[in-house]
Nucleic acid binder design. Structure first.
Lengths: 329, 329
DNA sequence: TTGTAGGCGTTATCAG
DNA sequence: CTGATAACGCCTACAA
């Protein structure tokens, strides 16, 4: 089934079929009908390869996956799903590139004209994929900030803003314990960990709060929560493993919002999955995805010269895991 | 950068370049060198669209995603990653299709020659995508079993076998509580839930065990665990939310492998993420993925006429969450 | 062992 | 407003 068949059935030329589909030139109402009926009747779909060859547009966005996709999988899937949906809205498809392929993967999909643009997920501070991005044939959007972002397009959640909001929420305490990302995450060299921590510590210093930063190991969550609570901490800022932390807290008999204050960096779904819903800042993976694609399409459309970083603003939703201010200190 | 350029630099004809790359005809050592050097020098990559157009092969596998990709995300990511890796090993890429597109998505990617084959994830008992699969232009592999699988290619983990192994492991108890998939999952009409349950109940009946089937709601895991333990249950078979179940158990002061026996359907990573590692049957998402692609490539290669279902066998790994048999009953 | 040339299905330019 | 026709870059008979 080709556009030639459609043309024959409709009794028009092949190029007319093409123009009906693209809308790139005026068509009389009558022939448009003819063509559209033929298309319908034959259930015609244009051949992607041929179209890409002739138009120099693949209608494909490549997505470079994170290195360990199974950790933090729920957030990642939200990300990937939203990218795919946003791409489809603009009649594009999504091609997956594993992180295992590294730099070669990007070169391959860009060089072989397999995509029109690339989204690179989970960018590291020192990321080889960032270094070669400048000489790729296609616009590339980085989710996360590499150290050298000269001439790159980057987008990320505003972890600094999130840190400030969360610390401020607990600033009536003398001491705040941060249950932070564990070594497995830190050693991945994700620069948002540092951004979050620095902003948290600055805010704490400015507000006269003492911050205890406790990296939480994947295999010791419950143990560490207990230690921290035994040591007397009653103000918890959780950046990861929220479900396990909350259950560990409850296991000690203490109740968030009653016996202690707890805030978190967590999706709305996670924050509201407990008897006591948690005051939290969400990373908004879907917003980040949408904006990433929006900027990419702006670049493809030839508008938007703006290179550089963009932040998805942080916002805090108060729920019942924090007592009304004034009840402490 | 085209094969024409390579040909010019190498001083050979364009077709020779093509044949060097495909290996579809003998090439003298000398010209092969010439061509390979030129390819290297120009960092040439063949244009995917042109290749697809000429060869009628896109080198792309489409993957139709599940409806709610964020639930059970870790398993899904393992799945997707393994599919992508397996595809790359055969020089193919992976294209994502959202479940939201439904049947049209499959028609689109198949009809428009956007892929050579399709993998459909999380197939439902009554799945429209299964009904139209027979008239798609490309071979399609279903992960999971639809009710009508006449002429379809399906693959899935052997949930029945898994159920038998798990129940057998607790068969020295008079009563076993199954903390099963909750309504959110059951209503998705995934036929493995029924398969697992029926097999579990058959095995229990055969072994003289009484089975309490408790569907666990996402928002009530801890509560339900407590209820079940309060009611005296000391044999737990967990199919979902393992981490939360284990922590809830520990919260009651009871210890798996000491005060009660606990087995689970869970990945090895999940089963070993606790102080007391859990005796478990894994769904082996990566094995399922690999076999799905292997069969698909067999079909593409023109071999393998076998239509029908294939099961990835279940196996149980004993860890320390079950007391040595004989200590009860 | 290598070269020539036609065709794959679209897009888009040039005429009309 | 519509119709020919030349690319687009690669594959693969067919010749040599």
């Amino acid at each position: 089934m080709t556009s030639k068949d459609v043309a024959r059935v409709a009794g028009v030329s092949q190029s007319t079929v093409s123009y009906v589909m693209s809308g790139k030139r005026p068509i009389s109402e009558k022939t448009r009908r003819l063509v559209e009926d033929a298309i319908e009747q034959l259930t015609y779909l244009p051949n992607a390869g041929a179209r890409a060859l002739a138009s120099q547009r693949t209608q494909v966005i490549a997505v470079a996956m994170p290195f360990d996709p199974t950790s933090g999988a729920a957030g990642l899937m939200a990300f990937i799903e939203e990218i795919t949906l946003a791409a489809r809205r603009r009649d594009h498809d999504v091609l997956l590139v594993t992180a295992a392929e590294g730099v070669d993967g990007l070169r391959r999909v860009a060089g072989g004209a397999r995509c029109d643009a690339i989204v690179v997920m989970e960018v590291r501070t020192d990321d080889p994929r960032a270094r070669i991005a400048r000489d790729l044939r296609v616009p590339t959007m980085f989710v996360g900030f590499p150290a050298d972002r000269e001439g790159l397009h980057c987008i990320d959640f505003d972890f600094e803003g999130g840190a400030r909001l969360l610390v401020a929420e607990l600033a009536h305490h003398r001491r705040v314990t941060v249950l932070g990302w564990g070594p497995e995450v830190v050693e991945r060299d994700l620069n948002y960990v540092r951004r979050f921590r620095v902003a948290a510590e600055e805010t704490a210093a400015a507000r006269g709060v003492e911050l205890d930063w406790v990296p939480v190991g994947h295999d010791r969550v419950e143990e560490q929560v207990r230690e921290v609570l035994d040591a007397g901490s009653r103000a918890l800022l959780v950046t990861t493993h929220l479900a396990r932390v909350v259950h560990a807290v409850q296991g000690t008999g203490l109740r968030p919002g009653t016996d202690l204050d707890l805030v978190a960096l967590a999706t709305d779904a996670d924050a509201t999955a407990f008897p006591v819903p948690v005051t939290a800042v969400s990373q908004h993976p879907r917003d980040v995805s949408r904006q990433a694609l929006q900027r990419l399409f702006e670049l493809l459309d030839g508008g938007a010269r703006d290179t550089g970083v963009r932040l998805v603003p942080a916002s805090l939703v108060r729920r019942s895991s924090v007592r009304p201010t004034g009840s402490t200190r």
